[in-house]
Amino acid sequence: MKESMPRSVVRVILPPHLRTLAKVGSEVELEVETRATQRSVLDALEARYPMLRGTIRDQVTQERRPFLRFFACEEDLSHEPPDTPLPDAVTSGAEPLIILGAIAGG
């Protein structure tokens, strides 16, 4: 019998427009594999909230939208490869993964 992957709960903080779009509060909790990555968390986020598809990653290229950043544990993870494991503090749920919009006027 195949053993299932261990799972954990990751906290994600969304920017205001996406909270409105997904009809959620500032933070959502997602169950993902223990060795979660940016990609697996975003996959889980989009599976739970399909209306967010394309709003964080480009629908076609799957690249991070240029005016968004990924922060966690007081570090900027935006330029980490999407399959790099997230910090233990994020995968344990102690710290959130923050999706942040760039400051811009207009």
Partner: peptide, 27 residues
């Protein structure tokens, strides 16, 4: 749309009282 979050398409079936996001994949 916005520069931050790209393109969405919204659809209403009641003349604009309520809306639902539909597909936004333009490949």
């Amino acid at each position: 749309s916005t520069g931050w979050h790209g393109q969405l398409i919204q659809r209403s079936n009641d003349g604009g009282k309520t809306w639902e996001p539909v597909g936004n994949k333009f490949a």
